[in-house]
Write a protein that binds this DNA or RNA. Structure first.
Lengths: 195, 195
DNA sequence: GTCTATAACCCGATAGAC
DNA sequence: GTCTATCGGGTTATAGAC
């Protein structure tokens, strides 16, 4: 089946890129994990980079169903949703003994001069994440001071997460991640206290 | 000259790893930039990874003379020193049109399963950075609330910087970096206001 | 310590039968 | 659409003369 084969390739590549990175994943690795032969992959994709594009596209369209929905299950308070999402990343971090973090962030720093379409999809993924969190802060309404820009605050939450993941992956403990998120929580608590 | 050759190799590799990353830099690249032949490199280093170790070691010992000293030139206030260091990274970012960020952070995310000595040196570099900033916050004394942990705050400053660099490199503009640092500044201003 | 040549290997991508 | 075999090129590292 054609659709199935293509899907298997993308899913296999998604896992491999997250675990080993883009450059360190060979086409042979993808073929092996997908249980597919070279001819099939090159029938659906012009080359390896196009597989990456498909993976980034899947992440982009998966933000709601694959990331936000599970992270926000049962959480309705908009500000708690921000921290529920951060907690979601922490779970992923600890479940993998702090070896895997955010796959988008890893690829973004691994590729030093990505081709324009790759860079555009990386930026779109970050933008989607930020916009989702921005919406939470907007929904928080007057619980936050009116002079605090909601998008700036959402960007800050993402940099806290990405930076925390970076340090925690490096020393294989969630300590730095926890410290950063605790500080972000402290900041947002204070914003709510004296709005 | 032996010492000179070894040094040229390390400096060439330092530049290349920062610009292209570790995996994408070939030994041939290093040889070319250093103006050295393969025999010389393999005379001084068992392999490519050992060149990386030497580079990370140089970064580690260069934190004060190569990073803090120039960033803090003329800045004495401990809290302003924190933001002067962040400004230093912003300068590097904008001077390179947002293509290069923190070389340690890039390598840390690029290598998914680094050998223990590499990981140890990456962690030591982050630790040295955090400790320097922690000292600033300690020197700030009672300008900051006593119940705010100085090391947590220093870790937060590093994650803000690394996350900001990641996003800014991805969309090739310092906007995200500036937003994150502005939020950190806002937080620390508030800590000082109602200590 | 420095040089050149090259070994041994892995990579992405392709050709062409089925 | 799927398979196998393989091409051409780049990789790290080594051998051995000087």
């Amino acid at each position: 089946m054609s659709a199935d084969t293509k899907e298997r390739i993308v899913f296999a590549a998604m896992g491999l890129f997250a675990r080993k990175g883009y450059a360190s994943t060979s086409v042979a690795d993808i073929l092996h994990d997908a249980g597919v032969n070279a001819g099939s992959l090159y029938h659906f994709f012009p080359g390896k980079q196009d597989v990456l594009l498909a993976v980034l596209d899947m992440y982009l369209h998966g933000i709601r169903p694959m990331l936000l929905q599970p992270a926000w299950n049962g959480v309705t308070d908009p500000i708690e949703r921000v921290f529920a999402l951060l907690e979601h990343y922490r779970d992923y971090l600890t479940r993998t003994e702090c070896t895997y973090g955010c796959p988008i962030g890893s690829i973004a720093l691994e590729l030093h001069e990505p081709d324009p379409p790759v860079r555009a999809l990386l930026a779109a993924n970050f933008d989607g994440w930020i916009s989702a969190i921005e919406t939470c802060f907007i929904e928080a309404g007057d619980r936050l001071p009116s002079d605090v820009d909601r998008r700036d605050l959402a960007t800050f939450a993402l940099t806290t997460m990405e930076g925390g993941v970076m340090l925690s992956r490096t020393d294989r403990t969630p300590v730095a991640f926890d410290r950063s998120v605790r500080m972000l929580r402290h900041y947002i608590d204070r914003l709510q206290a004296d709005r």
